[in-house]
Amino acid sequence: MKKWSRPVKDFLRATRAVAWKDLAAELRSRELLSAMLVFALLVILIFNFALELDVKTRRSVTSGVLWATFIFAGTLGLNRSMAVEKDRGCLDGLLLAPVDRAAIYFGKAISNLVFMLIVEMIVLPIYSVLYNVSLFEPRLLGVILLGSVGYTAVGTLLAAMSVQTRTRDVLLPILLFPVVIPVAIAAVKASGGILQAWPMEDIMPWINLLLVYDVIFISVAFMVFDYVVEE
């Protein structure tokens, strides 16, 4: 940390402060996490009856069911985390703070990512127990991390946009889903490949795609976030 220059240190401090503010608020209220979690479990329950998750189909559809669950639960979290800022006028306060606005973006994105990862880490063992499949494979956790990073990177940016429109929370999934399709495809394919024990060279292209998506969209969001919150 010491050899970094002062602006970088300030930036990291601001990012940490914004992320910590969200996490601390959530730690006290647990509103968002409990809602996301219950919602995720309900989605799995619905899939159970919609798809007849018997032993034979389970192998091939598990990754799809998991990612659909994460994506739906994720939208709930993204919406809520931005709506809270807007409703109580916190966003204006944040914007008045003398810090780089990209730090606000990264702080929000990190807290959103943490919420999503917590939900995923609770859903995975529950799914494993319910359907008797082992999901504790380090590579699968890696894919889930990469997919969630890409999803929240775009999601945080679009949530900041949709919260400032008239239709608000209805708009977020409509804006978000067509843009995150590459993440959904790559993440489902990579997780499915890992669960069905494909050879690694068949899985790598999907993981590379996830990496490319993450890098591109984090940098773009970093560059355009200013335009989204500007008054």
């Binding site: 946009m161 591109i216 989204v228």
Partner: peptide, 26 residues
């Protein structure tokens, strides 16, 4: 604001669509 948001969204779409194409091309 409408113009700014529209521009940001077309930019995101312009980057995401080629990736969608590539991913399905696999």
């Amino acid at each position: 604001r409408r113009a700014r948001f529209g521009a940001v969204y077309t930019l995101l779409g312009g980057l995401s669509v080629p990736l969608t194409f590539m991913s399905i091309r696999l």
